[in-house]
Design a protein around this nucleic acid. Structure first.
Lengths: 339, 339
DNA sequence: TAAGATTATGTGAACGCTAACATAGTATTG
DNA sequence: CAATACTATGTTAGCGTTCACATAATCTTA
């Protein structure tokens, strides 16, 4: 807390170790051409002075900051947080730092500011986690001289990107219901302004069509309350709906809450499948069958893409991580098939 | 994505605007001594070239990075993510960037690395979000020349800090149960290695004692599964327990799940209060009465402390944010008091 | 209108590091 | 053991800013 005692620099270390500053620099960047004894001496001096290399000076001269920017929208949702952590770890392991700017996806102004701040830091690469399309074009315009990875954006031919395989996840979830014997399965979809929502719809439709069933999609968004409202209003009996595939666990939770209130038995009267596998899902009433995306893996892959590119490795431009089906108590065969 | 087209610097802008580099610098730092016309000309030149100031060069010469570090442990839990966001926004508003390192609180090695990385970036200040004590001493040792704010750490006399008022939150929650007429109220506590757990226990005990009731604390941790296990094992009848104050919503969720399985009615047979107000809490079965901490506010306050200090303002060394009681369906008067 | 005060702009050095080259020291070879 | 290669270290310049100061332009005022 005490103010500015002037941090030691490379020359201070050099003097103490009785070498030139360049030798100290060599130790820092562990150059191979160093007598072990000299390296030791310098290392000791560094430790004695509590020396820490000045990243600014280094960034200035190398024109490389060793910082990867993460532009992220909607940090509030569960997923991003874990993903950011895995990205950070991945970066750290390669000697990079991750620095994030979370912005409001609704406001181009906010996105702009975020990108500018990151550029100002001199980031060497950028990961964009934005599930909405407008953001992407802003970033493309503003960021031109460093590699960018888009997560969960539609496949941009020239860009690096990584995505959850929402399509096959949704298909798997729907297929699970079909396998149980359900015929009348409704999909409560996410907001179509989000990239993730659309392939989940398509995955659902694909499974239905292949089974010769008629898909029916109800528009929703990602919020619990929306699931609740839909659950309150939904007429199961007229159309004989026996199962619902919800686009995320929030919707599923809201639906289940509404059905509990209405006295609709789950899975007795209606089976429910979610998507996300939030930590609470196994403890919902009843425990929720859902699709578990390996977000940590997605983060690792994305950061790995950037780092690989920076190292000059040739990298896959497009990567996909497939979710896993977690079967729990919210799904069962339909009543009709029991009788 | 195209490689290194050499970014324009202050001299390029100066040449184009027909002024000296220092005048450009003055525009960047909006110095008052500038003819409006000159400023305009420079601004135009900057825009034309897509000029962005180089943070490294600036940091080098000013010895100020305009970066605030955030050292955070256990990012997985719900709270931290929202808090980080509000800190970031607060920092941005003052022209600072926030940069976080998330570390494993179990591993001193990991904490060490995290701190070193942040120091290396030349951070101007540090916010430490660590609910466990070992971390604090590591940080204290390593970081000596910049201001540090500890969040949710016990009141360190000489440090800046901000906390949730866990004590009064817990007291409020317990009092709510007492007011409903409960006499035999158990507290399922968090892990005592965490700073937050202890004042919640004390708050509970304080409310109980003031009401002339006997406190009983069951040791737990923050996990849903732990709540579930405790819920499965807990003998309510022998001791006539009618209410439980859980140290967080996870425990409460686990407890409720176990009671559902056992056929123990909530709130009919036992009332439950949580702590955190996770977004799902209103949709639990039944909706959970809990304490809602304003974490965004806590983040703002903490970052404000650092920024205020850096601006040379005199700041409160210790700040506290009080949680709010959210009454929902999981609490009701005990059966006995109805008869 | 000359002198000083004020406003607006320019000049050179320094921040701490690495890159590129220069030099000294040591091993290898004919 | 001189000549050559290689290893280990030193020297100088420059990255893009801001700071401290110097100078030029403009405004006051007696």
């Amino acid at each position: 807390m005490n103010e500015s005692v002037k941090l030691p620099n490379i020359y201070d270390v050099a003097r103490l170790a009785g070498v030139s500053h360049q030798t100290v620099s060599r130790v820092i960047n562990d150059s191979p051409m160093l007598k072990a004894e000299t390296r030791e001496r310098v290392l000791t001096a560094m430790a004695d002075l509590g020396y820490v290399p000045n990243a600014a000076a280094r960034a200035l001269v190398t024109a490389k900051s060793k910082i990867i920017g993460i532009l992220i929208t909607d940090i509030v949702y569960h997923g991003p947080a874990g993903m950011m952590h895995s990205m950070e770890v991945e970066a750290l392991n390669s000697g990079y730092m991750a620095i994030s700017a979370s912005v409001d996806p609704q406001s181009l102004e906010s996105i702009n500011r975020g990108v500018q701040h990151l550029r100002q830091m001199g980031i060497d690469g950028l990961v964009v986690i934005t599930p909405q399309s407008d953001s992407v074009s802003v970033v493309e315009k503003l960021v031109t001289n460093i590699p960018v990875v888009y997560i969960d954006s539609p496949n941009q031919p020239k860009s690096l990107s990584a995505s959850l395989d929402n399509f096959s996840g949704a298909k798997k979830g729907t297929q699970h219901l079909i396998d149980l014997g359900h015929k009348n399965i409704v999909h409560v979809a996410g907001p179509t302004t989000w990239f993730d929502a659309e392939p989940r719809i398509r995955g659902y439709e694909s499974a239905m069509q292949e089974a010769g069933l008629v898909p029916r999609v109800i528009a929703g968004d990602w919020n619990i309350e929306t699931g609740y409202q839909i659950g309150k209003a939904l007429d199961l009996d007229t159309e004989g709906i026996t199962a619902i595939f919800a686009a995320n666990d929030n919707l599923a939770l809201g639906l289940m809450h509404a059905f509990r209130e209405r006295g609709v038995a789950i899975p007795g009267r209606v089976s429910i499948v979610g998507f996300d596998d939030v930590p609470e899902a196994p403890y919902f009433a009843p425990p929720l069958t859902t699709l578990k995306p390996d977000l940590a893996e997605l983060g690792r892959v994305s950061m790995g893409l950037i780092l690989g590119y920076l190292k000059g490795e040739s990298v896959e431009h497009f990567n996909v991580v497939e979710p896993e089906l977690m079967v729990r108590a919210s799904t069962a065969p339909p009543l009709t098939s029991i009788t």
